[in-house]
Nucleic acid binder design. Sequence first.
DNA 1: GTCATTTTGTTACATTTCGTTATATAGTTT
DNA 2: AAACTATATAACGAAATGTAACAAAATGAC
Lengths: 206, 206
Amino acid sequence: MDNKISGKVTSRLTLYHSILCEYIEDGIELISSPQIASRLGIDDSQVRKDFGLLKNVGRCRVGYNVKELKDKIEKTLGFAHQKDAFIIGAGHLGLALAKYDNFSSYGLNIIALFDNDPYKVDMHINNKQIFHITKLPNLVHRLNVDIAILTVPKNQAQKVADFLVASDIKYIWNFTPAVLRVPDNIKVWNENLIASFLQFACKDIE
Amino acid sequence: MDNKISGKVTSRLTLYHSILCEYIEDGIELISSPQIASRLGIDDSQVRKDFGLLKNVGRCRVGYNVKELKDKIEKTLGFAHQKDAFIIGAGHLGLALAKYDNFSSYGLNIIALFDNDPYKVDMHINNKQIFHITKLPNLVHRLNVDIAILTVPKNQAQKVADFLVASDIKYIWNFTPAVLRVPDNIKVWNENLIASFLQFACKDIE
DNA sequence: GTCATTTTGTTACATTTCGTTATATAGTTT
DNA sequence: AAACTATATAACGAAATGTAACAAAATGAC
């Protein structure tokens, strides 16, 4: 990506996007920054500032064209640039992510799942096949996939990560609580649910 | 919470904690900031600075006592202060979270699950019962639970959230992509997987 | 046509946060 | 005692955050 957008802005952009989708469903064509701001409980000038990162699409005294704005957000966040990924671990979390249809509209294509449980192999979930983990290296190369979504139990995480690296996976979206050791050229993105909960809990509860 | 700790620090503290757990499993009693830093690929003085938020427990030229440090992190992040919660939606994601044993050791007790599917009612997952959603208001009051983890499909999210609010739930950990409308006195914490993926994708891929 | 109003787009600003660097201190080892 | 390693704290500059301010533009009222 050429333009570097911070995490907080990215997060807000997805929220704007979600609101825009609602407006489209309701057949509303225009939206203003104060409307969005009050919906999210934030400052309206912040909304406009965020939109400044896209392209100027608003019209004074009128607001923004909902569809146009939605397109700009999608383009900026790269929804169009589809990326293929495998889910490693067909437990509940893996299956939940596989069923999460939304991903594909945001640029993430789940191609298949992998597990070491022979009972699960060859099952299909949401039109995606579950393969035995031993099939991974072959499919990585044949389908040219370099993103893995890791949803195995914690105590297997490192072992599986090593296998992913050996299979030429380059990016790991890590849903396990394990702190993975990987070579420098492999990128790991930790989905830290515990930390997320603690922020939630510490900030707001008691 | 009296001490306000930023999200990034909280996140790092959980990573330190995870590493400390490894050391305990391996029976190692001492750890130094450079060790932790190199494990995570960050600066060692940052590690010490983070630890400064706890209490000074390190000994020069020796390092930190692993167990002591782990306790301090747990106390600071409030692991000891157990919080009870219900999971709303017994789909794959709800079940995955219910099976996620780690939560309880980090202060989050999942008490039960709720769903509107009669077929799922009365099943148990990880010793937690699935109740019909109509039982929620009663159980909220009887068990004094005010945290709900929302894992229902997006198109039901708002309707269910309204029901949670009417049932006296005060905190909602929202795993759906919906932007919820709730009264001011209700706290919502959005687990924005899409935004998380986009940060991952934008920063590192291509 | 004029004027008031609303909304955008941009700039400015004050605050906070971030991660590193630097420094002094303390404990271990040789 | 000297050298080394590790901690604790202060200082620093860079970056990011959210808010406020303001001019320009476009609409609608009169």
